[in-house]
Simulated assay, not measured.
Amino acid sequence: MSAPTPGTPAPGFTLRTQHGETVALSDLRGDAVLLVFYPFAFTGVCTAELRALQGAGTRLAEAAGGTVHTLAVSCDSMHSLRIFADQEGLDFPLLSDFWPHGNVSREYGVFDEDKGCAQRGTFVIDPAGIVRWTVHNGLPDARDTDDYVKALAGL
């Protein structure tokens, strides 16, 4: 499946957080959403990216002009994500796309069939549920949170 492009509606989804809570994209309408797909918890580049997101929370909200929901999605199990979030001190939702394996990652065009994980794809979704900005990096290539700040400022 191909990734949604700027100007198109973001595919809806409902996933569980590292705490077992349900998050539905539709429930976040009215606020900006930063949707970040990453390959695996406990890996070097992913850990660094998520730590950077944790540290950029205030900058992201200021750029969005209010509330922005940062959602990080991987195909790891909810239980693994809980340990990972606790270990790294991450307080934003880590969403598990574990089962059915990779369905949401596929909807967003970022699932790597050969490796069985999400690739590094990011989507800025406006308060109306429309994708406004995207970036897709290869597995070894970290993304820059400054790019997210700029994209959110453009909403």
Rank of each mutant, 00 (worst) to 15 (best):
H69N: 08
D141F: 15
L15Y: 09
D31L: 09
L81W: 07
W99T: 11
W99A: 01
A10M: 11
A56Q: 08
T70I: 11
T145G: 01
F92K: 08
I125W: 03
L60M: 10
L35V: 14
G154Q: 12
A128R: 14
L81K: 02
W99Q: 02
Q54M: 09
P39A: 09
I130C: 07
L152Y: 04
G30Y: 10
A153Y: 02
H19K: 11
H136L: 14
F98N: 06
R132Y: 02
G89I: 12
W99C: 00
C75G: 05
P6C: 14
F98P: 05
S77K: 14
A32D: 03
D31H: 15
D141M: 14
F84N: 04
G154R: 10
G66H: 13
G102C: 12
G44F: 14
A24Y: 09
L94E: 04
A72H: 06
D86S: 15
L25R: 07
R143Q: 14
L50P: 00
F98S: 01
I83A: 10
V68Y: 00
G121A: 10
T14A: 15
T17W: 12
G12T: 03
F84M: 11
C117A: 11
V36G: 03
F123S: 02
F13Q: 04
H101E: 10
L50S: 04
L94I: 14
W99H: 13
T22I: 15
A10Y: 01
L94F: 13
E107P: 07
D144W: 15
W99E: 05
A10V: 12
Y108P: 03
E107A: 03
G102E: 00
L15P: 03
N137F: 12
V124G: 04
P93A: 04
D97E: 14
V104W: 02
Q54Y: 01
K115S: 09
A41C: 11
D97Y: 13
F42Q: 14
V36M: 05
G30C: 13
L35E: 05
V104G: 02
T145Q: 05
A48E: 13
W133I: 12
S26L: 13
Q18V: 11
S26E: 08
L34W: 04
V131A: 03
D114P: 06
P6D: 01
E113R: 13
V124P: 01
V33A: 04
C46R: 05
A56D: 02
G121R: 08
F98T: 08
R82S: 02
G20H: 12
V124C: 10
T8N: 05
E49P: 01
L28I: 15
T22G: 07
I125T: 03
A52Q: 08
H69E: 08
A48D: 04
T5Y: 12
C75S: 06
C117Y: 09
R106Q: 11
F111N: 00
A63V: 15
R51Q: 10
T47M: 12
L152M: 11
S2K: 15
E113K: 13
S74Y: 06
C46K: 07
V135R: 04
E113C: 08
T58H: 09
T47L: 07
T43H: 09
V68N: 04
F13R: 09
L152R: 05
A128D: 12
P11W: 09
C75M: 08
F13G: 00
V68T: 05
D86F: 11
Q18A: 07
V104M: 09
V135S: 06
T67W: 11
P11V: 10
R82V: 12
A52R: 07
V124N: 00
V110Q: 00
A142Y: 01
